[in-house]
Amino acid sequence: MTLFLDIVAGAALIVASIFGLVGSYGLVRLPDAMQRLHAPTKATTLGVGGVLIASMVYYYRQEGTLSFHELMITAFLILTAPVTANFIAKAHMHRNIPPEDLPPTGTDRGWASFDDPPAISERTPGEPRDPI
């Protein structure tokens, strides 16, 4: 059983190292800024997830108890990776694309990074508050 757990941990580590290396190499290799956004936010997060799975299996083999710290880190990283990717993409579009080339937002207001937020008196009742 310990040999099996060792093999599982080792395989997870190998897969994780491949994903992590691909993600970081894509950051250097891909030609366009929006394409470069893909590699680290997806592949590297998966790589860290693999490392944490390996460490869970490894500590289960060492101690005999399952620890859930790793699942916390994995959940946090998987929750925050899309948020940071969205923020970085928005910052890139804000700085590099002229405002008249941006796609329409679908509402009567423009992009939040260019337009001022509507005053409280102009809001219709029941309209949700703008995100900060």
Binding site: G10, A11, S17, S24, L27
Partner: peptide, 19 residues
């Protein structure tokens, strides 16, 4: 059987840090 993948993973993530 765990030590060799550990070294591989450490090398891969360090290389990623350099990138």
């Amino acid at each position: 059987i765990v030590a060799i993948p550990l070294i591989c993973a450490t090398a891969a993530f360090s290389l990623g840090l350099l990138f």
